[in-house]
Simulated assay, not measured.
Amino acid sequence: MFKAADLPDTLPVFPLPGALLLPRARLPLHIFEPRYLAMLDDCLKSRNRLIGMVQPLPHADKELHNIGCAGRVTQFSETEDGRYMITLSGVSRFRILKEENGFQSYRKCLVEWRDFDRDLGLHEEDAGFNRPDFLTLLKKYFDAQSLSTDWDALKEADNEMLINSLAMLLELQVEDKQALLEAKALSDRRKILTTLLEFSLLSGDAEDRMQ
């Protein structure tokens, strides 16, 4: 487990719209662009093996959201044609202070971690979570979107894994993903996710009435 003192001042960042990583969650990635292959190569040589996932600002050339989440490379495998399949395990969110110039082909940023101390804990609780009501809402959403899932696995997942996995996996707008990332606590993330599911269902109902 990482301690605050273990977190670096600079971080290679991987801008990827719609890709959300959260603390204590896992994100599989397919690395094939030369600059990100170089980033991975340097990352694997480092002591902490951290990569910062951050979302680009919509409709802005090279601008990034200022909050992302760092993940440690915990699994990787190379394909015969030189691509990599890796897994990032979420460690902590960070705030970008400025982008650093350098000779590397990928982007690197000066970051701070001080607002995200809770990310380094073992897990986070949500005492106000009404799980049966949430699963009922989720079932309606999946039915409306014609999605399928392993409901037994969802029912067995703990509250943090359930909320964070859905936040990462559901197809949502970049700004919605960013709002879920920036939520101060798990309870806030759950409330935002619930609102997004309810809004989607209401929007669908409105569209049906208009047809």
Score class of each variant (00 low, 15 high):
E80Y: 10
L197H: 05
P8T: 03
S187T: 14
D188C: 10
L40V: 06
L135S: 07
M161T: 14
A4T: 06
E156V: 12
A60T: 13
R26F: 07
D133Q: 15
P56M: 04
D133P: 05
Y84M: 04
I163S: 00
H59Y: 14
G128S: 06
M161A: 13
T87L: 08
P34E: 08
R107N: 02
A144P: 00
L22T: 02
R26I: 05
N66C: 06
A206D: 06
S148F: 07
H59N: 15
D119S: 07
A157G: 07
A38E: 14
E112D: 14
N48K: 09
C69I: 05
L97C: 09
R93E: 02
L122K: 12
N101T: 15
S200Y: 11
A60F: 04
G204C: 06
I31Y: 00
I86Q: 03
K177S: 00
S146L: 06
D126N: 13
C69M: 08
I67W: 02
E207T: 12
W113I: 00
L181R: 08
S92E: 02
K139E: 14
R72I: 07
L50F: 08
G82D: 09
D158Q: 13
L170A: 07
L202V: 12
R189E: 01
L64H: 02
I96Q: 08
G18A: 01
F14C: 05
E99Y: 10
D81A: 12
L162R: 07
P17E: 12
L201Y: 01
G90Y: 04
D81S: 14
R189A: 11
F134Q: 03
G204E: 03
F199G: 11
L172T: 05
N101K: 13
G82L: 02
C43L: 07
L169P: 00
E112W: 05
F134M: 10
Q104R: 15
C43R: 03
L196G: 00
Q104S: 13
A38S: 14
V174D: 13
P132Q: 11
E78I: 09
I163G: 01
D119Q: 10
R47S: 14
K3L: 11
E124C: 01
N130L: 04
M168A: 05
R209Y: 09
H59P: 02
F116R: 02
L197N: 03
D115H: 06
A127T: 13
